[in-house]
Design a protein around this nucleic acid. Structure first.
Length: 892
RNA sequence: GGGUGAUUAGCUCAGUUGGCUAGAGCACUUCUCUUACAAAGAAGGGGUCACUGGUUCGAGUCCAGUAUCACCCACCA
């Protein structure tokens, strides 16, 4: 029965249909039977701000590999998809859109604006979910979550209340990073620093003031309440502790002179005017020294009331006026240009204004009575030693642990309120000075909810457990403990792997660990796998403005999903950035086609009648060779995936599939006459490599699988296992590799005209040790090699056996068989000599080392007897080999 | 200022706890329409593993230092 299949595999024609069928058949949902183990991943939710990029594609590819692999291991496997509302990012995006219509959010009003945001988010969500599907992601859509949906909102509010009840959430004044344009607070890590040149003014507050100070922001000096100097600075020692008053541009200042070791004596005048309200470090100093806090600048970035002619002016204008006034009074000693870092909003680029403001905070240092530890301590323990009887969380690559610790140790109280509209509104209500914190709105009309919303990481920090609740009713707060009463939560938490880019280690991963250890009393995940950033082929970040963006959907349309996925996996190692080019994807498209054609050939030779009993006795050298290599590959690929080495796994598979199976075995199979056995081997190897490839390339493998007339989908098939290698098959493998090498050498000699084509050349194999090859049909072996020889037109006319020693020939002993190749004209004697000399050298080194070790009393005393015996055996073997090689060398 | 990583073929990168002749893809050269695949096949060229020392029988791999590049954190009053 010969099936006609197209020569070229066209992914576009099949992918969508296959995915739809998988989804419809419920293959993405976890098996109810959890007897074989459980495995779960929650997808890092993409922001609903637009479309997916290559970074997302890499994330999906890696997670899908893990999920499919574990599903094939028979585990009940769950992968939850979802999206993030990404408060500030989304709101800013929509503000830009309505700006084009000439509107601002304030003109629209809260409700109408939020409706626009919701529409936009919905659209984005739909696009994203299509893209996630196009990547072949086998995630369970029936459990899809959104950080702002009803169930997640319930979790967020419950945890907020819980933290509030535990005294971890408080409201307080603090200098925060304020963006005057976004009218919102920014977290420290949302602030970007830009290098700029700015004038540094060195001046005195008034002409009687004894200390000269330097600043780039004279206008804030209106709010100075102290002057700080280094404690060991001799110039100012006498003033420390005094309070001096000054008349600064008409404003009376009372300045306490304080000593602080953070002050650098070499910068400026070594004295710093302390403005508690408008500088982070000044705020800290003010707290330490109990200074008065005077606010100068308001939320719009203008000077507040009470500062005479400066009031109402923008900070910039006020600065100009003050500089002018100071120079009129001749108080400016120096004006120089310095380079400093301007803090700007990561969203809009507006320079941020540090302002004291009333915000909600999470206390990270307060001990939680239930755990006996603070949030910070819990989070540190989860990664360093483990908490709640769990093993420590493993971060891959390990080096990021250090970053994590450093960041966590320096963590300050977390400001969780944002002055934007889109997001989880803070579940706090006010009425006539009364405050209510709760999950539901309190009864009665007059209650007004806090207008601030929560930092987006507050909700995404709960992602591993909030997604495992299926509806709001399952979420309860009982005796101060969070209960998630769902089957999914009991089965799948903690999750197995959290896979994401290293750029959000602090933003997100750290916050998930913090939130989960606190609220659930467990770790959120056992492993963290951090992939690198996907960059363009020159190593630049992909960005729209640079025009170097490679859109995953374009690539999928052009080269297919499987090729796109492979290009993101091969050559990519955890924590390292990946440079991607279209050529790379193209090369994997070619590989997809290769697999397709391998399948196509084998299918075209399928016979109608079931292959009967296979006689292993009829297996040839090549059959044993490929089967033995296959075993090795199964072992290595399994091991690699278990250890998160996806690049290595797929490279090995790639190499086996193309260079060994297709290039050699398939070619030999064409000329072979044990057809039944050959077809059996072909089909079996194909069957196995389709399984191995499936997590990496789900579509092409499923397509071939179906063409092979397999009834079930490949998705639920078992992952291949290995049998123990017999010595015999290993020997076959080595022998075959050697003959392959000889044949290539002979062929090259022929091409270089070193061999007379008409001359008879034979490879002779000694019959001496044939008993080592029991089970091998020696006649077949010879035939097979002759076929290879003919096929490759090497000029070798035969392979035969000999019972006498052949002098003057290349002699090799491979796996117990002695092989003679008549020397004359075949091999470059000089090259061969060099090669053998090198080999002797390296073996001598090896033997020397082994002997040294075996003579080392310490080693002999400590090592197990088995290891010592093994090494002794190896030594003996190597010594024999060495003797043979030396003999051979001298015979040349 | 503090930290992390990288440096391997022309390009992009693999290389596990040190071990046998350092690999792949792309590019390059030569040959081949051979009935799975020209998106192919066969063969080949190309490397002082950044540099200098050290440990070791043995170093791309471990240690110390140097150089260059990249990134992260803090801060620049």
């Amino acid at each position: 029965m010969n099936k006609e299949l197209p020569k070229i595999y066209e992914p576009k024609k099949v992918e969508k249909e296959i995915y739809t069928a998988w989804e419809k058949d419920g293959f993405f949902q976890p098996d109810k039977n959890t007897a074989n183990g459980k495995y779960s991943i929650v997808m890092p939710p993409p922001n609903v701000t637009g479309t997916l990029h290559m970074g997302h594609a890499a994330m999906l590819a890696i997670e899908d590999i893990l999920i499919r692999y574990n599903r094939m291991q028979g585990k009940s496997t769950l992968w939850i998809p979802g999206t993030d509302h990404a408060a500030i990012a989304t709101q800013t995006k929509v503000e830009k859109i309505i700006k084009e219509e000439g509107l601002t959010r304030h003109q629209l009003g809260r409700e109408k604006f939020l409706e626009r945001v919701r529409q936009f988010a919905q659209q984005s969500h739909d696009t994203i979910s299509e893209q996630v599907r196009a990547m072949g992601s086998s995630c369970d859509w029936s459990r899809e979550a959104y950080t702002l949906d009803e169930t997640r909102t319930k979790v967020v509010r419950t945890v907020f209340k819980m933290m509030h009840d535990d005294g971890l959430i408080y409201r307080g004044d603090r200098v925060v990073n304020w963006c005057p344009r976004c009218k919102s607070t920014l977290a420290d890590d949302e602030v970007e620093h830009k290098t700029q040149k700015a004038p540094l003014y060195t001046f005195k507050y008034d002409k009687n003031f004894p200390i000269t100070i330097a600043t780039t922001r004279p206008e804030t000096k209106l709010g100075d309440t102290a002057v700080a100097v280094n404690p060991s600075d001799e110039r100012y020692k006498k003033y420390v502790g005094q309070t001096l008053s000054a008349d600064f541009c008409g404003k009376k200042l009372n300045l306490k002179i304080i000593a602080d070791r953070n002050i650098e004596m070499d910068f400026g005048t070594g004295a710093l005017g302390v403005t508690p309200a408008h500088s982070m470090i000044d705020w800290k100093m003010a707290k330490e020294h109990d200074l008065e806090i005077v606010k100068v600048i308001d939320e719009d970035g203008n000077i507040k009331e009470g500062f005479a002619e400066f009031s109402g002016k923008s900070a910039k204008e006020a600065r100009k006026m003050i500089v002018e006034k100071l120079s009129q009074q001749n108080l400016i000693e120096k004006e120089e240009e310095i380079e400093n870092n301007l803090s700007v909003c990561y969203r809009c680029g507006t320079s941020i204004e540090p302002l004291p403001s009333l915000q909600w905070f999470v206390d990270v240092n307060k001990k939680i009575s239930r755990h006996g530890k603070s949030l910070k301590e819990l989070s540190l323990a989860a990664v360093s030693s483990g908490v709640f009887d769990r093993e420590k969380i493993q971060i891959i690559p390990e080096r990021f642990e250090k970053d994590y610790f450093r960041w966590m140790e320096n963590l300050q109280d977390w400001c969780i309120s944002r002055q934007i509209w889109f997001g989880h509104q803070i579940p706090v209500w006010y009425k006539d000075g009364e405050t209510f914190v709760g999950i539901e709105e309190p009864a009665g009309d007059e209650w007004i909810q806090d207008t601030d919303t929560l930092d987006t990481w507050f909700s995404s920090g709960m992602w591993t457990f909030s997604t495992l609740a299926n509806n709001p009713e399952q979420i309860k707060l009982e005796n101060g403990k969070l209960i998630i009463d769902s089957e999914d939560f009991r089965n799948f938490h903690p999750t197995d792997v959290l896979e994401t880019g290293y750029d959000i280690l602090f933003f997100w991963i750290a916050r998930m660990i913090l939130m989960t250890t606190y609220a659930i009393g467990d770790i959120p995940f056992k492993n963290v796998y951090l992939h690198g950033l996907v960059r363009d082929d020159k190593g630049k970040k992909m960005s729209k403005s640079l025009g170097n963006v490679i859109d995953p959907l374009d690539m999928i349309a052009k080269y297919g999903t499987d090729a796109t996925r492979l290009s993101l996996v091969i050559g990519s190692t955890p924590g390292n950035d990946l440079k991607l080019s279209e050529e790379k994807i193209e090369s994997f498209r070619n590989f997809t086609n290769k697999i397709w054609n391998i399948g196509r050939y084998i299918i075209s030779n399928q016979t109608k009648e079931k292959t009967g009993q296979i006689e292993c006795k009829n297996f040839t050298l090549a059959d044993n060779w490929i089967l033995s290599k296959l075993q090795e590959v199964v072992m290595q690929v399994t091991d690699d995936i278990e250890k998160f080495r996806f690049s290595q796994a797929s490279e090995k598979l790639h190499d086996f599939t193309w260079s060994e199976f297709a290039d050699w075995y398939l070619e030999i199979a064409k000329f072979e006459d044990n057809k039944t056995e050959k077809q059996w081997v072909l089909e079996n190897v194909l069957d196995t490599i389709l399984r191995l490839w499936h997590p990496f390339m789900p579509f092409v493998t499923e397509t071939i699988w179906k063409e092979l007339d397999r009834k079930k989908s490949l998705i639920n098939e078992k992952w291949p296992t290995t049998d123990a290698q017999t010595e015999n098959t290993v020997a076959h493998e080595k022998l075959f590799d050697f003959i392959r090498e000889i044949i290539i050498a002979i062929r090259n000699a022929r091409i270089e005209n070193k061999i007379d084509l008409k001359k008879e050349i034979s490879i002779l194999i000694s019959t001496e040790n044939q008993k080592d090859y029991q089970g091998t049909n020696t006649q077949k072996l010879i035939q097979e090699q002759e076929i290879i020889i003919k096929k490759l037109r090497t000029g070798v006319s035969s392979i035969g056996f000999t019972d006498t020693k052949i002098e003057n020939s290349i002699t090799r002993t491979i796996a117990g068989l002695t092989i003679y190749i008549p020397l004359e004209g075949l091999v470059d004697v000089k090259k061969e000599k060099e090669k053998i000399t090198k080999e002797i050298e390296s073996i001598e080194k090896f033997v020397g080392g082994l002997r040294g070790r075996l003579e080392n009393a310490d080693f002999v005393a400590k090592a197990p007897a088995q290891v010592i015996n093994q090494q002794k055996e190896t030594l003996a073997k190597k010594q024999t080999e060495l003797a043979e090689l030396k003999k051979h060398l001298s015979s040349l």
